[in-house]
Design a protein around this nucleic acid. Structure first.
Lengths: 187, 187
DNA sequence: ACGGTACCGAACAATATGTTAAATTTGTAT
DNA sequence: ATACAAATTTAACATATTGTTCGGTACCGT
């Protein structure tokens, strides 16, 4: 990819996330992004068809990265933590979030959370499915697998969301233990 | 309230919900609502300052009603079902949803679900708090009450959301039993 | 150094928003 | 039944945003 393209694309993402930290998504105008990124109007539309597509691209970059590293983590350490392999993944996810890459915490906690949590949830379902489906299904043969996967992943996202709402007072370990406790019967 | 006001307010709500069944909230314009409701432009703004306020008003009417009746139900039948008072409330909630008052199912399931689920969740937290706080806190003294309430209510909303996504194939009783099962340790 | 391509800047039509004013219809209280 | 009050209508208005177009400029990769 052309160097110029990378730079403006990065500038747009940068400006966009910075704006998202201050205002709700719906209230942000393309013009604001253009001004903040300091680019020409036509340039923006050369990169993204719409504000919605920009959001989508940002989310994909963000969550694909998070889920992928978590995926790698859980696989790499899988055979070292046979006893309770679950908390390992979730703890790593929380810790990774706390590193606040690209100011993701602001995006997840602010007025925009509905949008981002939706993406988060969707991506997480894949992880949970490949990682814990067998385990959960074995413990609850009477529940549909879909239902279980949905319950686990949405519960985790809601736990993180709760954590953010309350100013992240708990340590990642504590939060992970909270989550683990509510999932005791399931995982 | 003036009869004319009631009628136009109702017409606006009617048109709005009907539109929400077909398009996403953000894509709906005030003009569309005006046309569908067949009212003058100024009239709309005399009733609602903004599209967002209209949404808020609709949500409040919708969920206040649902939660209130559920609240009443649980209190009225409380002493008859001392054994498992929990499923009673949740089952009634699901059944009430299935009656599809004001086409609420379309709103919850369509592209707008994030918005409505958010309202649903918020209102449900109050119900859960006054109804199950003691019970849950007693079983999990080491978890913050906030966390528990959030977990229960969001799990229920996610269960309903899952149910809708899959075409409501299960009966309300079955869904309630699924939910009950995942909440076994907690409630 | 050269060809290609990404950027700029300005202008453009189209559309949506929210407000205002006067005229008209309707409700309600007496 | 009447009269006053209040809601609705219609049309016009300024403003803001969107997405596109085009000629010109600066930059990249080879």
């Amino acid at each position: 990819m052309d160097r110029r393209q990378r730079k403006t694309r990065e500038a747009i993402f940068q400006a966009f996330t910075e704006l998202l930290g201050r205002q709700a998504y719906h209230q942000i105008t393309v013009q604001q992004i253009i001004d903040a990124a300091d680019i020409g109007r036509a340039t923006f539309y050369a990169h993204f068809e719409t504000k919605d597509y920009l959001l989508k691209a940002l989310c994909e970059e963000l969550f694909n990265h998070i889920i992928d590293t978590a995926m790698g983590h859980s696989q790499a350490h899988g055979h070292y933590t046979c006893g309770t392999p679950s908390d390992s993944v979730f703890l790593h996810l929380i810790q990774h979030l706390k590193e606040n890459d690209r100011n993701i915490l602001a995006l997840l906690s602010s007025q925009n959370n509905e949008i981002f949590l939706q993406y988060f949830k969707t991506n997480l379902r894949k992880l949970i499915h490949t990682r814990f489906a067998d385990q959960a299904a074995c413990r609850h043969p009477d529940l549909p697998l879909d239902y279980l996967v949905n319950h686990i992943s949405s519960s985790f996202v809601e736990a993180v969301s709760w954590w953010l709402r309350h100013g992240m007072r708990e340590s990642p370990e504590t939060l992970a233990s909270y989550f683990e406790e509510t999932m005791r019967t399931i995982l």
